[in-house]
């Protein structure tokens, strides 16, 4: 026990400052300010891997380490879509995951946000779209923000999540989804 406490003391606080929301990642201004007012900065996130190579999951996991400390921002990962405000979805969506992803989306209470993660979540990435790969997450469910990268690093993921959440950003950004990130 003493060793544990000593290690905690020696480690100290290692969390880093938060990156600014990145509006370049926004592809759909779906939410009214009213909804964001309700969510504030206490956000429940459900991660769904819809067919990725597991690289994106490694970086999403890193968000919970003490350095990015996403829970310190009021964002926490939940075990059920029924508890979630936001879905974080990595792709490419496979044929076998289409139905489960749709069911997760339906099980998530309105209002809800969707952030597509990684090059494959944005447009199918290296796996493309064809055969058992349905490509982009936006091909299956509506997407608010897409975060490219292979895999996107935790700061980029955080910026993407904050872009989906930030009410001031929502006022600036205009129209409906263009389907995918540039």
């Amino acid at each position: 026990m003493l060793k544990t406490l000593r290690q905690i003391r020696r480690t100290g606080i290692v969390s880093e400052p938060v990156p600014a929301p990145d509006d370049a990642l926004r592809i759909r201004a779906a939410l009214e300010g009213r909804i964001l007012g309700i969510l504030g900065r206490a956000l429940a996130v459900r991660m769904v891997d819809a067919g990725s190579c597991n690289g994106c999951e490694l970086e999403v996991n890193a968000l919970t380490n003490p350095i990015y400390n996403i829970e310190g921002l009021g964002v926490h990962f939940v075990a059920s879509p029924r508890h979630a405000d936001l879905l974080l979805v990595s792709g490419p969506v496979t044929v076998a995951m289409r139905e489960p992803l749709l069911r997760v989306y339906e099980a998530t209470p309105d209002p809800k946000l969707v952030v597509a993660v990684g090059d494959c979540g944005c447009d199918g990435g290296i796996f493309g779209c064809g055969g058992p790969s349905l490509g982009a997450v936006a091909n299956v469910i509506p997407v608010d923000v897409a975060v490219p990268g292979c895999p996107p690093n935790p700061n980029r993921l955080l910026a993407g999540i904050l872009a989906a959440l930030d009410p001031s950003a929502a006022l600036d950004v205009g129209q409906e989804s263009r389907g995918r990130a540039e």
């Binding site: 490419p92 055969g131 058992p132 790969s133």
Partner: peptide
Amino acid sequence: LGYTHKGIERRFADFGALDGCRL
């Protein structure tokens, strides 16, 4: 299992052998 089956083996045929490394 099989839920993340995305046709990787067939996808290789779309790549040149030098690029296939990335896949």
